[in-house]
Design a protein around this nucleic acid. Structure first.
Length: 754
DNA sequence: TGACTGTGGGTTTTT
DNA sequence: CCCACAGTCA
């Protein structure tokens, strides 16, 4: 037996080696799901499949990265050629190639949710609709879910049920907004997140030039992670790829119905049921042994989940020993909850020799993080809050990115609107409105209407200057690399100068953020490693933007010894030695938004299930009788979920303990907010060589057998060189780094011959 | 155009 | 309580 197959349990082994035909792997928490997925891919390659014939889809970049790393550890370099990535990134990659077939430019912009919202806001204004009635978020969700269910505007209008729902909400014009929204995006050469899926489906469906056959042939093996989180549209796309006449149906879905927590975003458990119906030869494997947690934790989790009606029957078990019972902390106030949790963390660190990194505090809503931050700061315990505003969502970062986007795609209206008068250049709101109206009237991108609007002489001049400037930016973007172009644009636009004027602490933080973005772009340009499939192998601004459009803050993997604070949603897939699940109160967890429907409640319960199954050894659950919410004191009952865990799993001394007497909850001195607590997108950390002592040699001189120096990887030996003259790629062995064998694109290489 | 004030709204969110 | 935004005034 192949070495990598040893150490798999019986079911895992079957799931890995059953390569032909449809397979569903139902994987409980901590049951080695990722292991199965990666070994299966490795096994496919070992058995002769070409890496590029394998399509592996995940939901997060992080999961994709982890998967690739783990495949590489078994099959080496070949892992780079597997089409592994998120649904969105892989689909975007295909769409870049095929865009013209469905009427999009290949340099299409990806609109993020903020862009989508501002498009909707503009449409509301145009249609004179009350934005208190037409709540932008609600409309966006509505449009998103229409797309996710393959309902285009035309079908929406004819769908009596949808129209009735809109009338009930007093938002009968929603279909008009939807129609306009779609038209606007197309006019701007932009796809929103849902379009990356929707348009791919359109491509499959319309099938110009038989493009679908091409990809059916190409992807001989398909794997899908977190299948329970796929929506109707995603499954429809997968079916097009895998289900057709004489298809080998080599599709393997891995998931856990009990961990489906994204129904509110359109994920549907129906997909698992349909999967069995659609693929008749389906073989199901259940991974039921939990290798993560001790028994009290696993059993408590099992108890909780049995309260849900619908589920795939399975029995999760652990042989890691009984372990510790759960602790329950009952606090009078949210502040006391914070203090007691912090106390417990100190205690656990001492008693069990845990480091900060072993510990996580998980909450239902991001707003809950504050109290814990206050006490952790007071106790001098390092922590990091995940979620909230991501680096790329900060205003100053978005401003610069808007300039970059516009330079790459002049039709990008959201980018244009954002910066046309920032920094101020005398193009006021009335001027912009005129241009916008004109654009709507002639149905052309705003960019093309800048000269045509009937505006005063001053505005006219300002517009002409603006157009000239952006054209310069565009040329730069075409000719220079991403960093040179971005730096030029940041300076010439006046953006940097404007930020430098502001000497407040916040202002300096903003400047720092923009510089961090520029650093990140530099890093992108200097990163000469070939990662087939993921990173575009060119260093243009366009390539950079494609690269970051689908990144989130969560992708910033940063190691260090800190306590993790995050929402339960973001904790999915993670594990910690000690986990604190806090705020177990009615109306909070379960959330008041979800508690009136049975389905909503079930999803909340799955969320709780996800939360408790993050813990390896120590699990502490807490609630407070009262807490501040929206500035008002609220009194809540303990969560119904608490009663679903039998007392045998809960440490009695803790379930009885009241808050210590006389302990006043002092108004926490909410210390100065941490400003500039950003993380660089990639950063220039980890350079092995001092750049000032480094003189790169001409890349044409580099030959196999040479000893070379690399800024990031240090000293290495060139093993071989391949690729054509224009795209020579060197395989170099660098001592003392992870995956020492790297493939470096010589075109961009910064290598010094030793 | 910029600074100030009032109003309304506020689960979770891989992309 | 905290934020975003629209409206108002100088």
């Amino acid at each position: 037996m192949k070495a990598y197959l040893e150490g798999l349990n019986d079911v895992q082994l079957k799931a890995v080696t059953h390569t032909e035909g449809p397979v569903l792997v139902v994987a409980g928490p901590g049951s080695g799901k990722t292991r199965v997925l990666t070994y299966r891919i490795a096994h496919l390659i070992e058995e002769g499949a070409a890496p590029w014939e394998i399509l592996a889809l995940t939901f997060t970049n992080k999961a994709a990265r982890e998967m690739k790393e783990r495949i590489a550890s078994v099959v080496g370099d070949r892992a780079n050629n597997v089409w592994a990535g998120t649904f969105h990134s892989i689909f975007a990659r295909i769409l870049r190639v095929e865009a013209d077939k469905i009427g999009y430019p290949s340099n299409f912009t990806i609109y993020d949710s903020d862009d989508s919202k501002s498009v909707i806001t503009a449409i509301l204004k145009e249609l004179n609709l009350d934005k208190n009635v037409y709540n932008v978020n609600a409309i966006r969700t509505r449009i998103s879910s229409a797309k996710s269910n393959l309902i285009p505007p035309r079908a929406y209008k004819e769908n009596e049920q949808l129209m009735e729902q809109d009338r009930m909400q007093k938002r009968s014009q929603t279909h008009v907004i939807y129609e306009k929204y779609v038209a606007r995006c197309r006019r701007a050469g932009a796809m929103d997140f849902d379009d990356l899926l929707y348009q791919l489906y359109v491509l499959w469906y319309k099938n110009p030039d038989n493009v679908l056959e091409k990809y059916r042939k190409k992807f001989r093996y398909i794997l899908v992670d977190e299948f329970q989180d796929t929506n109707y549209l995603q499954y429809a796309i997968l079916k097009k790829l895998a289900k057709y006449e004489n298809s080998p149906e080599n599709i393997c879905a891995v998931g856990d119905d009990a961990q489906s927590i994204y129904a509110f975003r359109g994920a549907t458990i129906e997909n698992i049921l349909d999967f069995e119906k659609d693929f008749k030869k389906l073989k199901v494997y259940k991974l039921e042994q939990n290798y993560r947690s001790t028994e009290h934790i696993v059993k408590a989790a099992n108890e909780v989940i049995t309260f849900n009606k619908k589920q795939i029957p399975k029995e999760i078990w652990s042989d890691k020993g009984t372990g510790q019972k759960l602790r329950l902390i009952k606090a009078m106030t949210d502040s006391e909850e914070g203090k007691r949790i912090a106390d417990t963390i100190v205690e656990q660190k001492n008693r069990f020799h845990l480091s900060n990194a072993d510990i996580a505090i998980l909450y239902r809503t991001n707003a809950q993080s504050r109290v814990f931050e206050e006490y952790l700061r007071r106790y001098n315990i390092a922590y990091r809050v995940f979620g909230g505003l991501s680096f790329y969502q900060r205003k100053e970062v978005k401003d610069l990115i808007a300039y970059l986007r516009l330079a790459v795609n002049l039709k990008d209206e959201e980018a244009l609107r954002r910066i046309i008068n920032y920094p101020r250049r005398g193009i006021g709101n009335s001027t912009i409105d005129k241009i916008s109206t004109l654009a709507g009237a002639v149905d052309k991108p705003m960019w093309e209407c800048l000269g045509g609007a009937d505006v005063g002489a001053r505005a006219k001049n300002a517009l002409a200057d603006f157009v000239a400037m952006v054209k310069l930016f565009q040329r730069r973007a075409e000719q220079a690399n991403a960093y040179e172009a971005a730096e030029y644009i940041a300076k010439q636009s006046g953006l940097l100068a404007l930020l430098k004027q502001d000497n407040s602490i916040e202002g300096m933080g903003r400047l720092e953020n923009v510089n961090a973005l520029l650093d990140g772009i530099k890093d992108f340009v200097e990163n000469d490693e070939v990662i087939e499939g993921e990173t575009a192998t060119e260093k243009s601004l366009a390539a950079y933007l494609q690269n970051i459009a689908l990144l989130t803050d969560m992708d910033n993997e940063e190691s260090g010894d800190f306590v993790t604070l995050m929402s339960v949603h973001s904790a999915k897939g993670l594990e910690f030695k000690s986990v604190f699940v806090v705020g177990l109160e009615e109306k909070l967890f379960p959330s008041f938004m979800s508690m009136d429907t049975a389905e909503g409640l079930d999803e909340e319960r799955r969320l709780f299930y996800v939360a408790i199954t993050r813990a390896e050894q120590y699990l502490t659950i807490s609630y407070a009788n009262s807490r501040y919410r929206y500035g008002k004191m609220q009194y809540n009952e303990p969560s119904r979920f608490l009663e679903e865990i039998s007392p045998t799993h809960i440490e009695s001394s803790f379930s009885l303990r009241r808050s210590s007497a006389g302990e006043r909850q002092s108004a926490a001195p909410s210390g100065a907010k941490v400003i500039g607590n950003f993380r660089k997108p990639t950063g220039n950390r980890g350079l092995k060589v001092d750049p000032s002592k480094f003189t790169p040699s001409p890349s044409t001189d580099i030959q196999a057998g040479m000893k070379v120096l690399h800024l990031k990887f240090g000293e290495g030996k060139v093993l071989s060189i391949d690729g054509n003259a224009a795209n020579r790629v060197a395989t170099i062995f660098f001592q003392g780094i992870d995956n020492p064998q790297r493939r470096i694109m010589l075109k961009f290489a910064k290598l010094q011959i030793l």
